[in-house]
Design a protein around this nucleic acid. Structure first.
Length: 407
RNA sequence: GGACAGGUGGCCGAGUGGUUAAAGGCAGCAGACUGUAAAUCUGCCCGCGCAAGCGUACGCUAGUUCGAAUCUAGCCCUGUCCA
């Protein structure tokens, strides 16, 4: 359909919309007033990773379209653990850890959103502020009467777990109730009209909408984003090396940049639309590039995302490092560094020391497989000794490079 | 509380006394081919050791045995059904 509101047009043309609860209603509302919309985030780690980036960008788009982004930190719900998409119950976190995580995560949002007191300025809430005060009896009375077990059991988050014969605790079972309560609370006390989230949050969002209607007669809306996987089917933001963290201190900017630079060809257009502010016609031009030319688009993608998330300088340095390292066969300042003693260093120790191998055995296998290089030359002798005195380039495979710098 | 089923390497999943550091698959790493892509093919894939070998590992503990992931007992955890 063709949307009247800037908001829905923007979201639609950039590929953020998977499902909408009431397209016409929301479109009409967004066309005539500022819509405060929220997304909830977990506080299980001190940083969010790329898997949350769609949601973060969604809040950014909301603000770009003249509405008010509301970041809801799950300080309370994190104490429960969202069972959605999980086979195993989550470990409990201490209050101090959760508070520290929230503080750390906030720094990310400050890069993507403008916070303040104005009508379209972003705000952040912590659901512990109200969930923490909720008494059990009170909750049962006010909220419990609006949920039937029959219906709760049909939700995917519950059903999948039961079907897979995986345990689900009562604690987790209550997650959807608390999340529904959040929406109702924000709608009632902060004027929030919209909740957004991943497609797996549909059930939770719908619960909140229903709860707000039944308890207060308020009409609120929901949008979910498509489940984002990379072209080869993996979840966004998870690599075997670990999650692609957004915070500076959780993942070096160079590695962050490389994640985007190594995107699958097929994902380039989608990523540019979702994760950069580039105009659509420019994106159309970039994604039309064929063969090795698509690499130009990947560099732009990496630059743009890194700039948004890590700042202009981080993006520039990462690009320069990549250019020097890959095109020039030289060294960029962003590469990992290991001190090279004057007496030199054994190849195995160097590989382990710089983090390219987790154990000596792994380093040996790397050498035996021909993947270990010094200054671009394959080292096949595991007793190889790297002479000290000069800066050397050490590599594992074609992509991982590091600097051995004389002490 | 009772009956039954189950708990194996990052994940899935074979294995029911020695030839099992444990089939196979996925994921991962490296090589070839390329474009720092994908697909494909090849090698690797618990730790230490140049190696012989040693150590650790099949929920936990104790046993039986020359020898246990495999047998016994107790315990813990999970599921299904019953109370």
């Amino acid at each position: 359909m063709t949307y009247q509101s800037t908001l829905l047009r923007l979201l639609d043309e950039r590929g953020y919309i998977h499902q909408l609860t009431d397209a016409e209603g929301l479109d009409a509302l967004a066309a005539k007033q500022v819509v405060p919309g929220y997304i909830g985030f977990d506080a299980t780690a001190p940083s969010l990773h790329v898997g949350s980036l769609v949601q973060i960008m969604l809040l950014r788009r909301l603000q770009q379209a003249g509405h008010k982004p509301v970041v809801l930190m799950g300080g309370g719900t994190t104490r429960i653990g969202d069972p959605t998409g999980r086979d195993e119950s989550r470990k409990m976190l201490s209050d101090e850890t959760i508070e520290a995580n929230i503080a750390s995560i906030r720094t990310i949002f400050e890069r993507f959103l403008t916070f303040g007191d104005g009508p379209t300025d972003a705000v952040m809430f912590n659901n512990h502020d109200w969930l923490g005060k909720l008494g059990y009896i009170q909750l049962l009375q006010e909220v419990g009467t609006h949920f039937t077990i029959n219906r709760m059991l049909t939700f995917d988050s519950v059903k999948l777990r039961l079907d897979r014969e995986q345990p689900m605790t009562f604690l987790e079972f209550n997650y959807m109730i608390l999340q529904g309560y959040d929406f109702r609370h924000l709608a009632r006390n902060m004027g929030v009209r919209l909740q957004m989230g991943g497609s797996d949050q549909w059930g939770n969002i719908v619960n909140g909408i229903e709860l707000a209607r039944r308890m207060d007669g308020t009409e609120v809306f929901g949008i979910t984003t498509p489940l984002l996987t990379t072209a080869d089917g993996a979840k966004m933001g998870k690599t075997a090396a670990g999650a692609v963290w957004l915070n500076d201190d959780a993942l070096p900017a160079y590695d962050f940049w490389q994640y985007w630079r190594n995107a699958d060809d097929r994902d380039v257009g989608k990523f540019l639309r979702l994760f950069t502010d580039l105009p659509l016609d420019e994106i159309a031009r970039l994604e039309a590039l064929e063969g090795s030319e698509i690499n130009q688009a990947k560099v732009i993608l990496a630059n743009e995302v890194t700039r948004l998330c890590r700042g202009e300088e981080a993006a520039r340095t990462a690009e320069a490092t990549a250019a020097a390292t890959f095109a020039g066969g030289g060294l960029g300042q962003d590469l990992p560094v290991l001190e090279l003693p004057t007496a030199g260093l054994g190849m195995i120790d160097a590989l382990v020391g710089i983090g390219f191998a987790a154990s000596r055995g792994e380093a040996k296998r790397l050498i035996a497989g021909g993947g270990a290089r010094i200054d671009g030359e394959a080292v096949t002798d595991e007793s190889f000794h790297i002479a000290g005195g000069a800066e050397r380039r050490i590599s594992s495979g074609k992509k991982k490079h590091g600097i051995l710098r004389p002490a």
